[in-house]
Simulated assay, not measured.
Amino acid sequence: MTTQLAKRLNGKTVLITGASSGIGRSTAFEFARSSPQNLKLILTARRIDTLNEIAVEIVQEVGNGVKVLPVQLDVSNPEEVRGFKEKLPAEFRDIDVLVNNAGLVRGVAKAPEILEEDITVMFETNVTGLINMTQAILPEMLERNNGAGVGDIINIGSIAGREPYVGGGIYCATKAAVRSFTESMRKELISKRIRVICIDPGQVETDFSVVRFYGDKDKAKAVYAGCEPLTPEDIAEAIVFAAGRRENVVIADTLIFPNHQASATIMHRNNQ
């Protein structure tokens, strides 16, 4: 039997940024599994070889009902974002769901020792990149449905955007900016049939901490010691659930913790 979720996603085009790993990769697979008969996926990231591999894996798993278009894109580069939409094949240009997932964290330094390059890359990716992608895709969404608009914009935030913590000043600031931008846009688009959705994960085990510690896997592993963090699949399920609701239902704001977590810094660890 076809589920209501599959029926609602049927025929849609979904664009996922940061799709080469972690939450983005899992979200691509979850969309494909949820609507395998008729779906188009646009997967973007800097690592095109990895995207090509994911595209092959998706088709092998769910079949040819899902069409996957891998596109190399660095969302922190405004020029690349500006030219992105026009370079898409015609059949992929009517985007129904934009998942702004691309983001990163660098370092645990406190002011005044935060590296300027870390500040720049976090803001350019997490904030400017997300805003520029939204502005590249939103105009066409607004034109559809006889000017009433249609589509979903799903921004991936973080508990860090709600609760700043020591050593995360810049990352927390970027995710707070995402939260503010999302809430402002939801209010600005209140007369349109465009759903603006924010999903804030708590502790999730991805390459996130490896990047934060500049590739030091031992330090990254220590972050999750004694814990059972969320998986990228957990967040992907929430993203697809939100996109698959009836058109009048908006899962506006979602905070997701693993069972051992109560805030950004309050966690139960089995070894303590």
Rank of each mutant, 00 (worst) to 15 (best):
P258D: 09
N10Y: 13
K67W: 02
G168A: 03
N38E: 11
P201S: 06
Q60W: 03
V99Y: 00
I170W: 07
I119L: 15
I95T: 05
A148Q: 14
I153P: 00
K219T: 00
G161S: 05
T2R: 13
I95N: 05
A148W: 08
I153S: 00
V211A: 15
N10M: 11
G169M: 12
H268A: 12
A238Q: 14
R106N: 04
G22D: 04
S158N: 06
L104V: 02
T125R: 11
A262L: 12
Y171C: 08
D216C: 04
K85N: 07
G63K: 05
E183A: 13
P78Y: 06
R82M: 10
E124R: 06
E91Y: 05
S21F: 06
V62E: 01
P89Y: 08
A55I: 08
Q135H: 15
T44I: 10
G167P: 13
P201V: 07
R195S: 06
V178W: 05
L88V: 01
Q261R: 05
F84T: 00
T128W: 13
F31H: 03
G22Q: 06
A262V: 10
D49E: 15
E163W: 06
T13Y: 08
R46E: 14
Y171D: 11
Q272C: 10
A173G: 15
E113I: 03
A136I: 10
L5I: 03
R179I: 10
V127P: 10
V59P: 01
T254M: 12
E237C: 02
N270R: 08
G161W: 06
T17P: 01
T17M: 05
S263Q: 07
R246M: 09
G157C: 11
K175A: 05
G63D: 08
A111N: 11
L130W: 00
P164M: 07
G129P: 15
P229G: 07
A111V: 15
V99R: 02
Q261F: 12
R8Y: 11
G65V: 03
L51E: 04
G151E: 04
T13A: 05
E117P: 02
E163L: 09
R195Y: 00
A243I: 00
R212E: 15
C198V: 12
M267R: 11
I235K: 00
